[in-house]
Design a protein around this nucleic acid. Structure first.
Lengths: 207, 207, 207, 207
DNA sequence: CATGAATGAGCGTTCATTCAT
DNA sequence: TATGAATGAACGCTCATTCAT
């Protein structure tokens, strides 16, 4: 009660406040997806969101950093729920890898703008020290590495460096939004199948 | 008074002029590699290059776009020569793929800053229309796709979508600079071997 | 609905209202004393007072001007009572001057933050016309000038310009908060004695 | 040669550049003297100086801090030369004190706006740590304290705390711009005589 | 070949204040 | 009595670029 957040950041616990935040986050994602991170400013976001001034953004978020962090957190929540649902009930490692790939491709197909925006943020958003803040390899690759190690332990997968393999898988998937930009009519379902086969061959133990 | 070609861009055919351009390009690459594309400005580049004002940059390059294009062209020339030398004498497609991967990894290992800078430019540089200008899939992937198609034609490689495969290979390699950022002591030679094996398994036709 | 006086300023005659006003004034004084007038904003005051928004300040005070005026009035009331108590029973002018100096130094010693804040307000607070509103020489110097004139009339003090002398005495005292800032361990009692002697020598009639 | 100062701060060694800097400093002093430090912005300064945009200020000074520092340095240079000329040839300490007071009052009389501006800057300009940067007691009081100590050593002055006395003298003088604000027609020459007598009585050793 | 000077537009942020409950 | 939401204006500052020599 009565915890101040420095004027600029009002209480998040409010219907209208949460709605405004969501609206601003949505406009932010759209703007980044379309114009890129570098061309995205509060003015551009406010314009897209139909806000009277950029002041409203500063009012709901402590600053640009918090806005971007909020957009990323929103994304993680969204994709996390999606992936958790798809991965449920998977038993063996090969199935897990296949499901991971197809599920992520499906997510990308349904969230092209969001994915483009997140790639932009991950690649451009840096904390004060200058380090890329968001593209935390460990966090992103952790899940994949676990699948791969499980598969090796169970004999399903051959012996390979799980870090390199996980990074390769993830980058193949992360690259799809860029591919889509160059070829908007790319058949993502077919892509998914190609990638599943590719990495199945690349990972499975001989015979 | 001297005739200049291209309005605002002085004669490129001059020893001192070319040297200045090279100096500015080098400073640009260093700045982008260290601070990222978004934090790179003419002021920052001039500071690093030891120039008294940004005017000299505007003098030698028509604008920011031309400067970036010049940096990219410089890179293409540099890497093109390197790769041509390594690929010379390769006979079969499997060898070509293996050589492509190991050569590119070697190049990355020796040009970390340059690679980081180029990745930044490719991901952030857009022409006036807003389209990502530099990451021209066809240009970058063309060589790889040719190798893959040759291998399929000759029966060395199985049947797969060469575009997806080429993109996957390329992104695995493009990702190394980022991996190096997170793990500066990564063993790139070992990585190369992992990737060679990975894509050999993924591409070769079942004997 | 309740009748408010002064549009926007709620009833001052209320226990909770007065308490809130006092709380806000206290936070204002602390903030100014610590950060200076220029860095003091409603946001910063609200933060220190533990208020959820600056709205509460605007609610209890018609504006920034009234808040500052209220803080000054509060100060005048506080110091007025203190000085009146100390000055009571003084008979001759030399004693009055001595008592004025020692009492004011004592007050300053016990109210450092408050004094710093008031100096900041006096020096920065201007009304709409741009004139320094608060450092009303007549009001502040009036008491001193009366003492000095009384002393001249009674033959205790030599002939001097009472305005200049009063201003010099007052500024010597007003300067102590600044001196304390530079030398926090300054011996204020000793200072008071120095100033008493200084101005006794400067004012008393020869022989 | 070719020392970069971060684009915004061009070489000071240039006729036109130095003139511009002087012009901007003059406009800054006028603006502060009239509106006070808090109401002084780049926009207001540019307006008074007749500049096309505030950009020109940022171009010639690295930032607000450097502008203020430059104004203060300018003032120190100006007043330093003036005082040095007046203090030349002074022999005894009583003369030195008298000359210091009369000379400073004369300077103030001829530089009212400048003095008001400097008082504003000294009282409001703080470095990043929040400490009042400019009103360095030691630097300002040093000269006075030296005069006072010399007088004590030579037997001209009685025994008193030179720090308190110096601060009292200085504050009496520093206060004149404020007095002038309240009473624009104040006779400064008479003031000077009053102060000379006041501090002569307060300091001299009993004959 | 080079450069000092200047520029308008835009940046994220903070300001005290008002609206509507 | 209190509060969350919203606001236009202004802040210092940086941007790539152009002018004039």
């Amino acid at each position: 009660m009565q915890v101040s957040q420095g004027e600029g950041t009002p209480a998040e616990r409010s219907f209208t406040g949460a709605a405004r935040r969501a609206q601003i986050i949505a406009a932010t994602i759209e703007t980044i997806a379309e114009l890129g991170y570098g061309q995205t400013s509060f003015a551009r976001i406010a314009e897209r969101a139909g806000l009277s001034s950029t002041r409203l953004i500063s009012y709901h978020f402590a600053g640009k950093d918090e806005l971007m962090s909020a957009a990323v957190a929103d994304f993680y929540h969204h994709i996390g729920q999606f992936m958790a649902g798809r991965m449920a009930g998977v038993t063996c490692a090969r199935d897990a890898l296949r499901t991971y790939i197809t599920a992520l491709v499906a997510y990308i197909a349904d969230n092209r703008a969001r994915m483009r925006a997140m790639m932009e943020i991950f690649l451009n958003f840096r904390d004060e020290g200058g380090a890329s803040r968001s593209y935390d390899e460990n966090e992103v690759l952790g899940h994949l590495q676990r699948i791969l190690r499980d598969g090796q332990r169970g004999g399903e997968f051959r012996d390979f460096d799980t870090f390199v393999m996980a990074a390769t898988v993830q980058r193949a998937l992360d690259g799809l939004p860029f591919l889509l930009e160059a070829r908007p009519d790319l058949d993502l379902a077919a892509c998914a199948e190609e990638l599943v086969t590719l990495f199945d061959l690349a990972t499975r133990s001989g015979s």
